[in-house]
Design a protein around this nucleic acid. Structure first.
Length: 145
DNA sequence: CGCTTGACTGGTA
DNA sequence: TTACCAGCCAAGC
């Protein structure tokens, strides 16, 4: 989104043309690499935390980032989420929403509405693409972990 | 080797 | 109240 000021006329390419961009070499590399369990990749870290999210519970990127010690790198968490589908283990990315409780990543799901469906199926109430009582359903990784 | 983009957040204007 | 700026890490071209 070119949040910064350097967005001027950078609207030439924008976003990878292919929705299913090639899986991050990082993820694939460790896949074949006998890491033994954990990786030094930031992605896996995020994936692990996200997997710890209880059913019917949601969390925010900042919470995960803070849990990892990189509160200022919430962006990376989002990037890691992009690699979720490429991750070896299933990651409930639908339980990860932004600090507003808005399903920002729903667009990345096969069907754009699947994220909401999953949340509703878990018992969460989603309205207008945002989690109702998000604060109540909020699950703090640092608190549980 | 360097710049841009990106599923974000928090603070300031 | 909403809008914009600045900071962080990583991958792609």
């Amino acid at each position: 989104m070119a949040t910064t000021k350097k967005n001027s006329g950078a609207a030439k390419k924008a976003a990878p043309s292919a929705k299913k961009t090639a899986p991050p070499a990082r993820e694939r590399l460790k896949a074949v690499k006998p890491s033994g369990g954990k990786d030094d990749s930031f992605f896996d870290l995020v994936h692990e935390v996200a997997r710890q999210i209880p059913r019917g519970r949601v969390t925010s990127y900042g919470a995960i980032a803070a849990c990892l010690g990189t509160r200022l790198s919430a962006r990376m968490v989002g990037w890691a989420m992009m690699a979720v589908p490429y991750a070896k283990k299933p990651v409930p990315a639908h339980r990860v929403v932004n600090r507003n409780g808005l399903l920002t990543g729903k667009h990345h799901y096969d069907p754009p509405g699947r994220m909401q469906q999953l949340l509703e199926k878990e018992g969460a109430v989603v309205k207008d693409d945002k989690v109702v009582d998000f604060k109540k359903l909020f699950w703090d990784p640092a608190q549980e972990l």
